[in-house]
Design a protein around this nucleic acid. Sequence first.
DNA 1: AATGAATGAGACTTCATTCAT
DNA 2: AATGAATGAAGTCTCATTCAT
Lengths: 207, 207, 207, 207
Amino acid sequence: MPRITDEQRDARRTQILDAARACVAEYGLEAVSVEMIIARSGLSTGTVYRYFKGKGEIIAAAVISGTAGLIRALQPVLTQDPPPGLPAFMQQVLRRTESYSKRGDIDLRHVALHGWSHSQSDPELKAAVETMYQGARQQLAQVCKKWQATGQLDSDVDPDAVAQLLLTIALGFSAQHALAGGAGIDAHIKALSALTSGLPHPGPTST
Amino acid sequence: MPRITDEQRDARRTQILDAARACVAEYGLEAVSVEMIIARSGLSTGTVYRYFKGKGEIIAAAVISGTAGLIRALQPVLTQDPPPGLPAFMQQVLRRTESYSKRGDIDLRHVALHGWSHSQSDPELKAAVETMYQGARQQLAQVCKKWQATGQLDSDVDPDAVAQLLLTIALGFSAQHALAGGAGIDAHIKALSALTSGLPHPGPTST
Amino acid sequence: MPRITDEQRDARRTQILDAARACVAEYGLEAVSVEMIIARSGLSTGTVYRYFKGKGEIIAAAVISGTAGLIRALQPVLTQDPPPGLPAFMQQVLRRTESYSKRGDIDLRHVALHGWSHSQSDPELKAAVETMYQGARQQLAQVCKKWQATGQLDSDVDPDAVAQLLLTIALGFSAQHALAGGAGIDAHIKALSALTSGLPHPGPTST
Amino acid sequence: MPRITDEQRDARRTQILDAARACVAEYGLEAVSVEMIIARSGLSTGTVYRYFKGKGEIIAAAVISGTAGLIRALQPVLTQDPPPGLPAFMQQVLRRTESYSKRGDIDLRHVALHGWSHSQSDPELKAAVETMYQGARQQLAQVCKKWQATGQLDSDVDPDAVAQLLLTIALGFSAQHALAGGAGIDAHIKALSALTSGLPHPGPTST
DNA sequence: AATGAATGAGACTTCATTCAT
DNA sequence: AATGAATGAAGTCTCATTCAT
């Protein structure tokens, strides 16, 4: 018979994970201390440790919930039927990612790089992240199949291969944005449009 | 009059940076301690601190030399004239990156994610990395211009925009490889070929 | 007008102290936390703190009630009149101690060492324990006097001195049992019989 | 090629262990913090952790070296040939233990109780302590055999049993001294003399 | 009376860096 | 130039206790 409701519990966890992401955004993964996260969360040490077993669990949960949140936010784009043509589709993906990621001063696309790094050395987290990205890749493959069904994409090409390329672009955009600066969604879409201009039936105008 | 020659000095630095990269690959960015790096380098504490001011400098130098090394290794690909068509070109980029990155048990493409993360929170390093990637992007833009000059790419499109997309793919491939697994160079190239099949004069794609 | 009866209160206290002794037996004095004791007692934090002021009080009460319980259990042996001869008497003491101490998986003779340790650093507890052992020593001295009265013990010897030796043996047996293993009651009694074989009127030693 | 000699290393370890024993004597096993030990040792945190892996190792080493030191100090008594009669022998044991234990303000016989307690919950330490006490018990058995050889002890009795009793007395004396107070070596020896007055050939007067 | 979530002081430990040899 | 012992600030986490419900 818990004295606090599940909603309260979830709110607390979210409060802590938001604080963690904000701290990682501000100080970087290595420099973040549990103390910082605690201070920013507004809770006490003991309370934070009641909700998470330790620093590793906090970071892992922050990465997982951030990734899951992004994928959830992309569902309307990934599942629309019929999907728009490839450039328009990727434009929606990148824009939705951007709007999901910008939160006040922090951009989760930059925080994501820290999460990518951390997940390389936490096998459990790595597996969870892998599963989530593979799920998204399968959804992208579904989109490719729809394009093939409507003749917008060559039927000979492996939809999984195109899905890989699309995921690469989604991930790579965030990376370039964080690392080289000056990466623009519009520039990417224009480039994509130019490259794919010769596709069998560009645009969603087919029957 | 220095007691040791410049070659010796450089060899020592390389020895330390290789040890650092190996440790980061094995333990992850956060878990790496100077002690570990020292142990793996085979040098003594004092000696390592004679070559680098501290941990930050070691990590930054490892990231910079790794990135610079990759870009240097890519020069033959980036500067060939005339360049092959887009899919073949990107195939060369990804393959060269792969062959540069695989070193025994470690894959620098995975280590790179740690470097990306770290550079987010070290302004000096971030600036250095930014400069290097922007340089590479400019080289990619030069390639695009050559494609435009030979009619392989629509002259209306901004070569810088296509260069952005190509860099996005190069970075995103490593990210997907590390994060989702199952990313294959061949699949990417086939997908790229399919998408660009309608380009004015698609270049030859070797297997 | 209390809401719960005295019996209920005592039952609760006993429940807590038994849990405390079990935890100390399993984890050792230092590793025991109030949380563990609470979990094993089946009560809630708040309830335990209603019955005891804090950890110190729980441990002290556990030591005191354990020691008092043992001395109480030894009363039939210590007060019998006439007492058997020395070896038989000590045999009864060690056996009664053993039967009192063995409780399922735990042996209070081993837990006792933790109590001895703890009482060294809690002056109030130390005083209480001292008083209890001195009381037992006086009872032993009474037994010695009875032996002297019946000629079973040299009248010249100080009965308090013999009582000290007997208490030393009782305590030392538990210590050796816990520390060196292989300490047997029978072996001790045979050794005692052999040493005291020349006493004026050796008492009967039952097996 | 160590920069410090083995003697320096041993001296450091002894310095730390002495500090640990002093702290345990003053504050009790549970209340001792590594910080206290460090402060009393006069070393720095890092140095102490260079010599011992953690608190557990410090305490275990303190117990082991204390026990080993006592047994070493008792060697002249345990190995003398021929040994004196039983009361005189035990007098030497208790006196030597006392003189070994009294160090300024602290009495290792009281600290020993903490060690006994701690060793109950550290299996490795428990095994080490067991081995040491069993070794001492074997030496006591040798003494008993010499007594039997010279007719000072009934040949029918098991020398190991008498050795157990003697160890019990040695341990129990320290326990009573710490727990009940007022335990005197002289009283014990007089009691032992009285009890053993009827032994076949008391005293070392036999051929 | 009972509950258990919250608190925060303080415990243990690591590790980047210095400096005497 | 090289070594590695020493340092101590700072990090992670536990746990005895309180108190609103």
